[in-house]
């Protein structure tokens, strides 16, 4: 357990430091955030022609209400936590890479749901929007990361041959 937490924190700190670099923000994070706005608008416009997007902003053509997808809302930090959790957990690199690829996709699907729901909540009621944005969805995204990580642990347990030992994290319990 101690080994897991040490590796987890170290990987987390390194990945977050990389995420904070200006170059990384400019080259990867900002285009990714704009892509999220585009994807959200693409999912919404078939049902709601009032939605428009510009860069990282989603807006209502009728009312002018807009939400901007900022750092902390683009799912990058959630993905970083998931990656660190999978790297730190004892398993093969094949399992880690598969888990990271599928896990990030799962986290981003829920994040799209967050962005879309917050857009409509904001149009409806700003008090509810603030509550959902600042507290509720923060907790739900973390829960999403935890559940994806648990499903991955269950999956790798099923992949192991019957004679292989339990992972150290489970042994430590």
């Amino acid at each position: 357990m101690v080994r897991f937490f040490l590796i987890f924190i170290a990987v987390l700190a390194v990945l977050f430091r990389i995420d904070m670099l200006d170059e990384v923000q400019r080259v990867a994070i900002e285009p990714w955030t704009s892509l999220l706005a585009t994807a959200s608008a693409a999912l919404m416009t078939p049902l709601d022609s009032d939605v428009a997007h510009h860069g990282r902003i989603l807006m209502s053509k009728a009312t002018g209400f807009a939400v901007s997808i900022e750092a902390g809302c683009n799912g990058v930090e959630a993905a970083i936590i998931l990656i660190a959790g999978m790297i730190a957990f004892p398993s093969s690199w094949k399992h880690k890479l598969a888990g990271i690829a599928i896990g990030i996709a799962a986290v981003q699907v829920v994040n799209l749901l967050r962005i879309i729901s917050l857009y409509y909540l904001g149009k409806w009621n700003m008090t509810v929007f603030e509550f959902a944005h600042l507290y509720l969805w923060q907790a739900l995204i973390m829960l999403d990361v935890l559940v994806v990580w648990m499903l991955w642990i269950r999956w790798i347990a099923r992949q192991q041959p019957p004679s292989s030992p339990q992972p150290p994290l489970a042994n430590a319990a």
Binding site: I80, Q166, A170, A172
Partner: peptide
């Protein structure tokens, strides 16, 4: 802290206090 640890700290604390849950999950899968 703002982007990661505020939401992550309670999960780490829960993992420390309820290590049995993950062990059970693993054992059930096996």
């Amino acid at each position: 802290n703002l982007f990661i640890f505020t939401a992550l700290a309670p999960v780490m604390l829960w993992l420390l206090l309820d290590r049995e849950f993950l062990a059970k999950l693993h054992a059930q899968a096996r």
